[in-house]
Design a protein around this nucleic acid. Structure first.
Lengths: 142, 142
DNA sequence: CCTTATCATTTGTATATACAAACATAAAAT
DNA sequence: ATTTTATGTTTGTATATACAAATGATAAGG
């Protein structure tokens, strides 16, 4: 059934969740090429762009909680794509050569994903959508 | 950090996910009063409004997968809020008296949630948002 | 009728995410 | 200098959701 036909079509809870699930699915299908989920890929890109970045900074950039970030990092470390070095209470994350070598493919995925949804939704409309979502998102409480 | 400040602010993947998480959180805080997650509550309301409804119909209404629906139903059955009767390959779901008695509280939560976000986002803007999201959602592939 | 295809539901397992508590360290206050 | 508070990170555990395979049952084709 289409969202516009659901009994709960007017409820923001449903709309936003259903939409996010669809976007997630589209994104996942693209990042499967590098055998990674979109979150992992974005985190890795952040680390490649800013070697030594700390988890707390990643938390802010990705808008996820600290525990989630730890878990994402753990997985990427297992895959030998990045390493953690801890000094005192601070942790620094660096990409490994293997991780760094993925950079071009990661960028290609970003581009492919962006093209995929702008093609489907229209260039105008999707960028307006993203802006509106962000604006509203900022109004909602943490 | 605000969504509008994230490095990935222009990516629909981030925006839609972050937004959905916030909406989910707001919704959860309200439905905690009836000790239920929003999904469980909406499912229960569906069953109360249409006793004997089948899982496949719920799937279409809630835009979730069959396995997720089974899991939601299981939990509500554990809580004695609904019952399943299976005949042949079809299953019918009925609310228990206990489940039915929750109806007014469930409605109150719906209302409270709607008021919460329309207050925050503005009446106009939130209803436009919901419509746009649904429209775009329908364009994305299953 | 028997076999095969189709449909509805469930089960096993996996992913993404979060909350709350635990740690570990650094900074501030007395 | 010792205690308190604050900060950054990790761990234990829980929730929501999904995919793929299994199950159970009806329907269709030979």
């Amino acid at each position: 059934m289409k969202a516009t036909d659901s009994r709960y079509r007017e409820c923001l809870y449903f709309s936003s969740n259903a939409f996010a699930r669809k976007v997630e699915k589209l994104a996942s299908s693209i990042w499967k090429k590098v055998d990674m989920s979109p979150s992992h890929a974005y985190l890795l890109m952040l680390v490649i762009d800013d070697p030594g970045i700390q988890p707390s900074t990643i938390v802010k950039q990705l808008l996820l909680t600290p525990s989630t970030i730890t878990r994402l990092i753990e997985k990427l470390e297992e895959k030998k794509l990045l390493v953690r070095t801890t000094e005192g209470k601070l942790t620094n994350i660096y990409p490994t050569p293997k991780g760094k070598s993925l950079a071009p493919q990661l960028l290609a995925c970003v581009q492919e994903f962006n093209e995929a949804y702008t093609t489907i939704l229209g260039k105008e409309e999707s960028s307006r959508m993203v802006n509106t979502i962000n604006k509203l998102s900022d109004k909602l409480p943490d």
